[in-house]
Design a protein around this nucleic acid. Structure first.
Length: 344
DNA sequence: TAGCGAATAT
DNA sequence: CATATTCGCT
């Protein structure tokens, strides 16, 4: 008798807890958009979720969240994350092609990052070490890896020189200017840092190569490389429109301003309860470029795969190193670089 | 001079 | 294509 009752009670409890977790997860999904503005908030919710889950070991162990935290370096303690992110592709030494993709949580498909993660096989077994500088005069220093979701697979990566050998040295100075620079391969890690930098600096059009480079804190990375990459990035993000035959589904994405942030309407409105995938990232051809936010041009192209995520505001004062605090109100464009896109 | 962006070269 | 390098400008 009693037993049965308590059992039932337990079940009820479990159910309630499950619901609670669901609710929390939903909240988390919502605020995920503001990840950069409210990192702690996100963290808190995440932790709450995890705590709840721990309490219910018996629950359908759908461990969706590997280890959501530390997705961004935002908070100060992380400090400058120096790593050897660079990778010089040496045609022959195959092993690159790394894709580690899964920085941000996996459990929920955030429409934003989603575009980035997709097409990646996320095998990242090979991963590691982007940009080997066999020279290794460079910093052996490295902080705790940030966006590593290393749970038990942290094994790899972090061994900067395990890959194919190749004893290239940087022929920088002396040489006098004969040889071209090594082709730098922007690994996804590196690119992600780049993206982060962009976000924190206010978008591809306001961040300057130098700032970006400094923000990334990737050793060995030069201004020119960043500049070049930025250029490419801008070109890609410029107008993703038209290109795709626009399959009749003129997705009128509306963006609205929330607390100074541009955000796709569908992201925070819609009372979607669980399904997550509101914005069916349609034909996001954007690939890795898609993740980025750009300052909303005077009139945003209504139907484009190009969706902004967040324009920094940088409220969290980690160590600001020249972080440009910029409010992304539509009216902002005026002042400094008022020419984003020369509307042609 | 340094930095940026665009154009151009590889 | 994705980088690298050059060029013109501020």
């Amino acid at each position: 008798m009693i037993k049965k009752f308590s059992n039932m009670d337990y079940n009820q409890k479990r159910e309630r807890c499950g619901q609670y977790i669901e609710a929390l997860e939903e909240e988390r999904r919502k605020i995920h958009v503001f990840q950069r503005e409210l990192p702690l908030c996100l963290d808190l919710v995440t932790q709450a979720i995890e705590a709840c889950k721990r309490e219910l070991p018996e629950m359908t162990t759908e461990n969706m969240y590997g280890q959501p935290e530390c997705s961004e370096q935002t908070t100060g303690e992380c400090g400058p994350v120096l790593e050897q992110f660079l990778t010089i592709k040496d045609s022959s030494t195959s092993n690159e092609e790394e894709d580690e993709e899964f920085d941000d949580e996996h459990g929920n498909h955030d429409p934003d990052n989603d575009s980035e993660d997709k097409n990646t096989k996320s095998d990242w077994l090979k991963s590691v070490q982007l940009w080997n500088q066999p020279d290794h005069p460079l910093l052996p220093k490295e902080e705790r890896l940030q966006q590593e979701t290393m749970t038990r697979d942290e094994s790899m990566r972090k061994d900067p020189m395990v890959n194919g050998g190749e004893g290239r040295k940087r022929e920088a100075e002396k040489d006098g200017g004969g040889g071209r620079k090594q082709r730098r391969c922007w690994s996804s890690q590196l690119h992600r840092r780049f993206l982060n930098a962009l976000q924190h600096l206010g978008g591809p059009h306001v961040a300057t190569p130098k700032q970006i480079r400094e923000f990334m804190k990737v050793d060995g990375l030069t201004n020119d490389e960043v500049k070049s990459h930025l250029q490419k990035y801008r070109l890609h993000t410029r107008r993703p429109r038209q290109t795709v035959p626009n399959n009749g589904n003129s997705q009128t994405q509306h963006f609205v301003v929330v607390g100074g942030l541009w955000v796709p309407q569908s992201d925070y409105s819609t009372g979607k309860t669980t399904g997550g995938a509101t914005t069916s990232s349609t034909t996001t051809t954007t690939g890795i470029y898609g993740t980025m936010a750009a300052p909303p041009p005077p009139q945003w192209p209504s139907h484009s795969n190009y969706r902004p995520s967040i324009i920094v505001d940088e409220g969290s004062g980690s160590h600001s190193e020249g972080v440009v605090v910029r409010c992304s109100s539509p009216a902002m464009s005026s002042s400094t670089r008022n020419h984003y896109v020369k509307n042609n």
